[in-house]
Computed example of a mutant assay.
Amino acid sequence: MKIVIVSDTHMPRKERGLPEPLRNDLMDSDLIIHGGDFQTFDVYEEFKKYGELIAVVGNVDRVELKSMLPKRRIIEKKGLKIGIVHGDGKGKTTEKRALEAFEDEDVDIIIFGHSHIPFSRFMKGILLFNPGSPTDKRKLPYYSHGILTIKKTWKIEHIFYQ
């Protein structure tokens, strides 16, 4: 199973279309997880054209997305429990806010966004993963998204591009 992980697309403000490396991965994915900040409903709909989309709302998403998407959710794929949250809020780091969003839950991975900074680290026995942004790298050298592959075991990685 190939899961594309993306967050912080901020379209159309930052970009007019999805970058080619992301589109290529979306075309052969089994599932898409978006960690929020599509910005508009049209961008949400664009992701749905590529396949099954599971998403949470981000802090800059428009009102129609805020009314239909949860702030956090847990899904299970092939025995792997995945928590998804945008990670915005006051105080603490984005990583700590993401971890706290699931502190009373039994999850294996927490996918989050908000900071636009690619992140992959175990904290308290849970892998925290931020895919970065495919359209708004800020001061970082590369744009990015993530791929979670689940077979007999699982692996997660960042895909970087210019």
Rank of each mutant, 00 (worst) to 15 (best):
G51W: 04
Y44G: 03
F41Q: 06
G87V: 02
Y44F: 15
F160G: 00
E95R: 13
A101I: 05
I109T: 06
G125M: 08
V107N: 05
L148F: 05
L127H: 08
L26T: 13
R97Y: 04
I33F: 10
I82L: 10
G125P: 03
E15F: 10
K90C: 01
F160C: 00
I150S: 08
Y161N: 01
K71D: 15
G58F: 09
V57I: 15
Q162S: 13
L22R: 04
K152F: 09
N130S: 10
V4H: 06
K92A: 11
L22T: 09
H10S: 04
E100C: 07
D30I: 01
E20D: 12
T40K: 14
I3Y: 01
E95K: 11
S115A: 12
L99P: 08
T93D: 11
K81T: 08
I74H: 05
H86F: 11
V60S: 08
S144F: 07
P134Y: 04
F112E: 06
Y161T: 00
H34M: 09
I3P: 08
F160K: 14
H116N: 13
P12I: 08
P131A: 02
D8H: 03
I117Q: 11
G36Q: 01
T149W: 03
I110F: 06
T135C: 06
D106I: 08
N130E: 09
T40M: 13
T40I: 11
H10V: 06
V56T: 11
K2V: 09
H10C: 05
P141D: 04
S144L: 07
T93R: 11
K137H: 04
L148N: 10
Y143S: 09
S120W: 00
E105L: 05
D25H: 13
Q162T: 11
D8W: 03
P21Q: 05
H86E: 07
K96D: 14
A55T: 08
N24E: 15
M27G: 12
R138F: 03
K14S: 10
P134N: 02
R97N: 08
R13L: 12
V57Q: 10
V4D: 06
R121F: 04
R62S: 14
L18W: 02
L80F: 02
Q162F: 05
Y50M: 03
H86N: 14
D88F: 14
P12Q: 07
L22C: 06
R73S: 13
F122R: 14
P19Q: 02
L31Q: 06
V85F: 12
G58H: 09
V57R: 13
K48S: 14
K14L: 02
S120F: 00
Y142S: 00
K14F: 09
L31T: 07
E15H: 12
G36W: 11
F47R: 12
I84S: 05
K14Y: 03
D108L: 01
I147C: 05
F112Y: 15
